[in-house]
Design a protein around this nucleic acid. Structure first.
Lengths: 204, 204
DNA sequence: AACTGTGAATGCCTTCACAGCT
DNA sequence: AGCTGTGAAGGCATTCACAGTT
């Protein structure tokens, strides 16, 4: 079992490999990869070891080999996602994501405000939240993205879980409770900004 | 010195306190706070201990006292931020942030595309990137937000640093190199989605 | 009885450091 | 000479577990 932190870096390495392949680079040393990923050579070697990849001391690691091994480990058939909360942030995500990640496809968006539903936004059909369960079942959606205001986040998550969703990406600035077996990742812009301000202060 | 992880939780606790105060709750136990923050009672007690807060075994912690101690630790005068990259994501952030965090105020946005500059978007004036240095100096901006495409991320960061910015929030899906003393936080939506897909897979 | 405060234990992640290879 | 592969050490963060308090 590979740890979450390592998996995250493997995703990054994979993206870097894509770039290297485009530039016809054949081999990389751990220190080069470390440099590209803002990591350390030891960390890179440890990660590649964990991934079961082996290199050569004279030439480093074979880029194509790395890439295909990463694909093997990270591979997952494309999963469908539903987004709930069609505000500014929700809309930005609808416009931002298509073709961004091969692993996820947003197929529907929901809102409680009827002025935003039954339309097509950035190519994605919008529905009333009441239809969540039905649409999720009909189109086999397995992922949920929450971009609602914070007060609606927990109930939205609950509905998603009832509908059978197995993983949630939560943008609302509140922790969301999910039962064991459901993956939850929170991405809180407010906290990020606050951290930025805090750690950028001039020492005083 | 309080660790970054703890600081992050203090920000969360502070927001929770605001809610509790609104609801006239006077005291909280560590297990209640743990429940609200999706943490453990031991973690909460450890954090509050680190923050120098002490409670009572019969009533728990005084909410108002907590809040003011958090403000004391986390306090930072409002800092000005500049955003570079007025795409969908950049625009969403411009519309999303105002009044969201008391610690940060976005005062200017930049883009290399002249059709997006010299306008007001969501109340924020936009400039050509060439003016970054000048505007940053004139208005005492100390924070940068990168929402450019990935190829422009590093050069944008470099310009920001030359202009005197001390902290950067990077939304581009590439690591950005900064010299020591500059705070960098990356918030990569692509990686988050990929992680979501990966960890939500049904075991197979 | 139920909670806080905290030293000690645990566990995870990263880094060191070096033998072995090319 | 310079790199990889990796056991061992080190460093953090979390959790345990219990003495002390109300």
């Amino acid at each position: 079992m590979i740890s979450a932190k390592t998996i995250e870096r493997l995703f990054l390495y994979r993206r870097l490999m894509t770039d290297l392949i485009k530039r016809d680079t054949r081999f990389v040393f751990s220190h080069e990869l470390a440099n590209m990923s803002q990591s350390s050579p030891a960390q890179v070697r440890r990660d590649l070891m964990t991934a079961g990849i082996t290199g050569s001391s004279s030439r480093g690691y074979d880029v194509v080999n790395l890439k295909s091994r990463f694909d093997e480990i990270l591979h997952s058939s494309v999963q469908k996602a539903a987004l709930v909360g069609i505000g500014n942030l929700g809309r930005a995500i609808l416009s931002y994501f298509p073709h961004r990640s091969p692993a996820v496809e947003i197929v529907a968006a929901f809102d409680s405000d009827s002025s935003k539903t039954d339309r097509i936004i950035h190519g994605i059909r919008t529905y009333a939240v009441d239809n969540l369960d039905q649409v999720v079942h009909q189109t086999d959606v397995s992922l949920g993205i929450i971009t609602t205001p914070k007060d609606a986040a927990q109930t939205t998550a609950d509905s998603m879980i009832v509908a059978g969703i197995r993983g949630i990406l939560n943008f609302a600035p509140v922790p969301v409770r999910v039962p064991a077996g459901i993956f939850i990742e929170s991405l809180d812009l407010t906290t990020s900004l606050e951290k930025l301000a805090y750690f950028s202060r001039r020492p005083h």
